[in-house]
């Protein structure tokens, strides 16, 4: 029997097939929630423990990167779940996927991934994760009021809490970004126009350091290595 109450692989996909990285959201029977994705740099994982303590970690395929003594990146405490009947939830993480920075798919879709429809051009798809003390029906009621938010999945956790995953489309200002490699590695260009017709094979995530009581905010964009 699986130790997981929820085990969801998801991503964002455009009608022309361009996609985000594949993410995995899982909850354990102990009430912990994990959010992770993998890339050529290894696995990036965000853990939200039942105690309220949270941590981020990066690891290579063979465990912790050699340069790091501890695979944990940051630790913080998430916002408390609002009381039942308040009609509110505590957001703990959100990821923005700008539509014009999705990537040409590099592997066959094995059918196990829930693909969320991408926002139109000049937009971004937001996927949000929140804790509520409401049962699923109450959450659906709240989301019905917020017309443009779509419930992706609910998972009831021990202790009367529910993890809610929902998504919506919002505006986005496309701006090219060039991350310098300082000669050690190639620069990476994140461009909506994709002038190299690369298909943006490199998926990167950006975000501020998580702070106590605040949600993890991640921006995922596709880019390409450039040599000049």
């Amino acid at each position: 029997m699986s130790n997981l109450l929820l085990d969801l692989s998801f991503g964002v996909k455009r009608s022309d097939g361009y996609v985000s990285a594949i993410w995995r959201a899982s909850t354990t029977r102990l009430g912990d929630f994990h959010l992770s994705t993998s890339s050529i740099a290894g696995i990036e994982k965000y853990s939200f423990n039942k105690s309220g303590m949270c941590s981020s970690a990066h690891s290579g395929a063979d465990g912790a990167p050699g340069a790091l003594r501890d695979r944990a990146g940051f630790r913080w405490r998430r916002a408390a779940t609002p009381p039942r009947g308040s009609g509110r939830a505590a957001r703990v993480a959100w990821i923005a996927f700008p539509t014009d920075y999705l990537s040409r798919p590099t592997q066959e879709d094995d059918g196990d991934v829930l693909w969320i429809a991408a926002a139109p051009a000049c937009g971004a798809t937001y996927v949000e994760f929140a804790y509520a003390a409401e049962p699923e029906q109450g959450i659906r009621g709240v989301l019905d009021v917020m017309q443009d938010r779509t419930l992706v999945r609910c998972a009831e956790l021990p202790g009367g809490e529910t993890l809610v995953i929902f998504c919506y489309h919002a505006d986005w200002e496309n701006k090219d970004l060039r991350v310098p490699g300082h000669g050690a590695v190639a620069d990476v260009l994140f461009s909506a126009d994709d002038p190299l017709a690369s298909g943006r094979p490199l998926r990167h995530r950006f975000g501020p350091m998580p702070k106590d009581q605040e949600a993890v905010l991640l921006l995922e964009m596709g880019g390409a290595a450039i040599t000049n």
Partner: peptide, 12 residues
């Protein structure tokens, strides 16, 4: 100009 403040950029 055209400046867009997406929900994820409000705090910044």
């Amino acid at each position: 100009g055209l400046t867009v403040i997406s929900p994820g950029r409000v705090e910044a």
